[in-house]
Design a protein around this nucleic acid. Structure first.
Lengths: 161, 161
DNA sequence: GCGGGTTTGTTACAGTGTATCACCGCGGCC
DNA sequence: GGCCGCGGTGATACACTGTAACAAACCCGC
């Protein structure tokens, strides 16, 4: 796991994420505006899932207020491009760590101790879920899978403090 | 699938649900008060996921207002007892259709057409998810799995209207 | 320069959920 | 009976999350 230490080890990927976003937008002919960049940066630096209002506050400074609605718009854009994910169980947002194959299912691992969110994926889970849905006669369009618990580092920290 | 027809075929289980709730509360020494009963009844009769404010409105009548906060408290109680589930992706609530084994994972199948929510479970999914989590060094406490799509009846209705 | 699309700012508002305090009813206890 | 504690409810207020609508700024091609 990464991106949830609470210190700067987790910030390592921020630059990569921004670079990837910039390249991806250029490739698709979309605008990677300063606001969108700042929002993505704020999400990437946080180390844990951020609410839209948290981001707005983080980006605001005396004399320069960023309204939540602007943050929501930037987040909508970034989600459309697959650059951030929304954690439904927390009403919060995280940067997309790895470029997923489009349509690939993602599993969010949410640590209740450090608040960090990691992503996982598993063809095995996806296959068994697909079979279960088919058996139920259900045609899926979109699925969310979020697991809360303790990440490895936090669990060890609890055992040996 | 059941409980999402939009007509009264889906109401069949309401009585069962109430009876089960009453028995369960008596067994556990908890109070199945009129308010809690009404909230559960409203959720069970609706045929689709209900927001807390929907329930409050449904239970309110001229001269008898039920405040949302009361509904939330009743819902918290009912969720603690496993009698209703919360659909995180919709901010809404549904009755628990079947008594699950405690700790058993539930898959919510949310029909985007009729709005009905069905429950499924699969040991296969649970097993593969457990293995994936273990591989990631993650210790789960609670997981939510919600799938959006078209239920069988709605899909057929679309193909042959 | 000009028209048309996109992005952003601003305000207002709708929807979701929680905190707090007062009150009520009920059962135990002296 | 009177008292107390406790869980449930009512009521108000508030915080948090998200969207609608419109105006202004910006950019880009023509």
């Amino acid at each position: 796991m990464h991106r949830h230490e609470g210190h700067d080890a987790c910030h390592a990927g921020t630059g990569d994420i921004l670079a990837r976003a910039e390249a991806l937008c250029r490739e698709r002919g979309l605008q990677f505006t300063p606001l969108r960049r700042e929002v993505l940066e704020a999400v990437a630096e946080a180390g844990k899932a951020q609410g839209a209002y948290d981001i707005a506050e983080r980006l605001s400074a005396p004399g320069k207020r960023v309204a939540p609605v602007s943050v929501y718009r930037a987040l909508d854009f970034l989600m459309d491009q697959g650059l951030v994910h929304r954690i439904a169980s927390r009403n919060a947002f995280i940067p997309c760590a790895h470029g997923h194959a489009p349509g690939e299912g993602v599993i969010f691992l949410i640590c209740r101790t450090c608040g960090g969110v990691d992503e996982a994926s598993s063809e095995e889970v996806e296959g068994s879920l697909g079979r279960t849905l088919e058996r139920a006669g259900f045609t899926p369009t979109h699925s969310i899978l979020e697991v809360e618990g303790d990440c490895g580092t936090c669990r060890q920290r609890k055992l040996a403090p």
